Deep mutational scan, measured.
Amino acid sequence: ENVFHPVECSYCHSESMMGFRYRCQQCHNYQLCQDCFWRGHAGGSHSNQHQMKEYTSWKS
């Protein structure tokens, strides 16, 4: 089941984030949609070496 997250992806700027959401544990307010995370995208001061937390629902 695809879950809708009402936040913007920090890389592709999609405002309709579906599926899993990934939030960086080091960068303030840096979040990736499932597609950008799986493709290994990073931007700004974010590094792929940073720990990311996976969210499967909006409330989590």
Rank of each mutant, 00 (worst) to 15 (best):
H5S: 07
E1V: 05
E1S: 06
C9Q: 00
K53R: 08
H13M: 08
M18G: 13
C33L: 00
N29Y: 06
H50E: 02
T56V: 07
Q51T: 12
C9A: 00
H41I: 04
S47G: 05
S60I: 02
V3N: 14
N48T: 10
H41W: 04
S16Y: 04
C9M: 00
S60G: 13
H28L: 11
Q49A: 13
R39T: 08
C33T: 00
H5Q: 06
R21S: 14
W38F: 14
G19W: 06
N2G: 12
V7F: 03
P6F: 08
Q31H: 08
Q49W: 04
M17F: 11
Y11S: 05
W58K: 15
W58N: 15
S16N: 11
G43E: 13
G19P: 12
E8T: 05
Y11F: 12
G44K: 06
W58Q: 08
S16Q: 12
T56K: 13
G44Q: 00
E8S: 08
T56M: 07
N29R: 06
H13G: 10
N48S: 10
Y22G: 01
S10T: 07
H41L: 10
R23H: 15
E54G: 04
G40F: 06
V3E: 12
A42V: 11
H5T: 08
Q26K: 04
S47P: 06
G19S: 13
F37R: 08
H28G: 08
C9V: 00
Y55W: 13
S14R: 12
Q49Y: 05
S14F: 01
V7T: 10
F37W: 09
G43T: 07
V7W: 09
N48D: 10
H50I: 02
E15M: 13
C12Y: 00
A42H: 12
H13V: 03
S45N: 07
M17T: 13
Y30K: 02
G43W: 06
N29D: 12
K53I: 08
C12E: 00
S14Q: 07
F37Q: 11
H13P: 01
K59A: 13
C33I: 00
R21Y: 03
F20T: 14
R39E: 13
S45A: 08
Q51G: 05
S47E: 10
W58G: 15
Q26C: 04
F20E: 15
Q34E: 12
C33H: 01
E8R: 05
C27I: 00
V7N: 14
M52D: 02
S10C: 11
S60Y: 06
H28P: 13
R23C: 15
E54V: 05
S14G: 08
K53F: 04
M17C: 09
H5I: 15
Y22E: 01
C33W: 01
Y11T: 06
Q51W: 02
C12S: 00
K53M: 08
Q26T: 11
E15D: 15
V3S: 14
G40P: 05
Y30I: 02
L32E: 03
F20L: 14
N48P: 14
P6C: 07
Q34T: 06
H28I: 12
L32D: 03
K59F: 07
C36Y: 01
M18A: 15
M52W: 03
Q34L: 03
S10I: 02
S47V: 06
C9R: 00
M52Y: 06
N29C: 15
H41A: 11
S45W: 04
G19K: 14
G19E: 08
R23V: 13
G43R: 03
K59T: 12
H13Q: 06
R23G: 07
N29F: 11
Y30S: 02
C24G: 01
T56R: 09
M18C: 06
H46E: 06
D35Y: 11
L32A: 01
R39Q: 14
E1M: 03
W38V: 14
C36A: 00
S60R: 14
W38D: 15
N2A: 13
H41C: 11
G40Y: 14
M17K: 14
E15I: 12
G44V: 05
S60C: 05
N29P: 03
R23T: 11
Q25W: 01
V3Y: 12
W58F: 10
K53A: 07
R39A: 14
E8V: 04
V3Q: 14
H46I: 03
